[in-house]
Amino acid sequence: MQIEIRSLSYIYNPKTPFGKLALDDISLDVEEGDFFGIIGHTGSGKSTLVSHINALTRVQLKYNKNAVLKVCGIDLCAKKPDVKTLREKVGMVFQYPEYQLFADTVRQDVGFGPKNLGLGEAETEERVRAAVARVGLDYDEIAERSPFELSGGQKRRVAIAGVIAMRPEVLILDEPTAGLDPEGKKELLALFKRLQREACPTVVMVSHNMDEVAECCNKVAVMNEGKIAGVFSPRELFTRRELIKGMGMEMPSVTELAYYLAEGGVPVDPSCLTESELVDGLLNIYSGGDK
């Protein structure tokens, strides 16, 4: 078990009129090899939850007498958890990660993480080279350039490389494709899938883009007002149209299209998740008979 969460709660600004229960008795398990999605409306507590996993938000021990939070075998409910090791094992890509770039050159920026781990020059250099290549950029061309003169998409890749260079066991992505064009989104998702296969077996992705979730994840937790409304496989989840709509979220556009087609009398499977599934289905119906 990579991540184990039992009855975790979190209150923002306790004892003030701003007080708000952001997490309410959350329990979750993420296993090695999962591409785990967390979806939910704005303000449902997704970001608060994932920031616990990286100990950026500490467990409020006062309000969490019985809570369990274990990540890669490290107990985060302890008085003084081993945060340094934890951050080595858990990499976190924030929303708009390109805003955290700071160094003079791409090489230095990507090397910031490995340097903080206390790795030597040679090892750092090697990791930076590998990470930059992994996000699909040309190291020799880009290494000595300033990250601020790159394009938006390149900046984001560099920022992600900065996290991958730490070689984490668990990768947390918080709305990784926000603000990108459709092409950029697609490329980035392909990158994450490849990354999961080759380098980092466990990925947790926060998103409110259902298309992404349908395409990448094998398990999806739905959050609503600080509670987990359920953990499903994407196929299971998107048959529960009422649940999704009831929480003010959208269905994946492919599933939505299939749903309306089915409503209109076209005999397609309304639980299609990907474009190719739907296209195959339609081809079967309209040309299959004729073939």
């Binding site: 950026l56 951050r87 924030f94 990660p97 910031f112 903080n116």
Partner: peptide
Amino acid sequence: GRMMNAQKARGAC
């Protein structure tokens, strides 16, 4: 705060 968190996540202290 966000920047600090982002750099902390990359091992900054």
